[in-house]
Design a protein around this nucleic acid. Structure first.
Length: 182
DNA sequence: GGATCGATCGGCT
DNA sequence: GCCGATCGATCCG
């Protein structure tokens, strides 16, 4: 069990998205610890990616994507859901990894149906108040590596979800899914 | 200022 | 499979 440091995030976004699979998110909320394993991610890379929020340039909403790797980008989607991203790459290059699905590690929560991008933030009590927080330094939310190796055979690459409006980058296989390990 | 639509979800037909 | 919830960012004028 070791905490993940900034070098991990300050790399190629596709590499970070792939290697985040299997890592464990730890949320410390009002004295309670909530843990969840990451099982699906998506990469959003730069102003040229016409599915990425950075495609319209820098705004107050997305400016954290231009900042230091390892900082959180949390935004409100569809007026209802907080979505969790982690900033990647060098400073001044806007890119991030969306955490798209988790597996709760607390037994009593195993019955809940779905932990898509909107639901996992509800589960982990994450909202926009955590936007800009450094996940490598925060005590509220951090990531640990449980040391288990992922077999590359169990990683699937698929097109990203919910970006029909994109033209040039719609079909990129920038979604990474961790299949059930048996 | 006003219209449109979104990196979603759950309920209903 | 479709639709409404709900609000902020973007685009047009």
């Amino acid at each position: 069990m070791k905490k993940i440091s900034q070098d991990f995030f300050q790399r190629d976004t596709l590499t970070v998205a792939r290697e985040l699979l299997g890592k464990v998110l730890v949320r410390n909320y009002q004295g309670r610890i909530i843990k969840a394993k990451i099982v699906e991610t998506e990469a959003y890379i730069g102003e040229e990616d016409d599915a990425c929020h950075a495609r319209h340039g820098r705004t107050s909403r997305n400016e954290v994507m231009w900042g230091e790797a390892g900082h959180l980008y949390v935004y409100l989607c569809m007026g209802l859901h907080n979505l969790l991203n982690i900033v990647t790459e060098e400073k001044d290059k806007p890119a991030a990894v969306l955490i798209r699905k988790i597996e709760p590690l607390s037994g009593k929560d195993k019955n809940l149906k779905s932990y898509g991008p909107g639901n996992l933030t509800r589960y982990l009590k994450i909202d926009r108040s955590l936007n800009g927080v450094d996940i490598t330094k925060s005590k509220e939310l951090y990531l640990i590596d449980d040391g288990k190796k992922i077999n590359p055979k169990n990683i699937e690459m698929l097109p990203r979800v919910g970006i029909e409006y994109a033209k040039t980058h719609k079909d990129k296989l920038w979604r990474f899914v961790l299949k059930n390990e048996k």
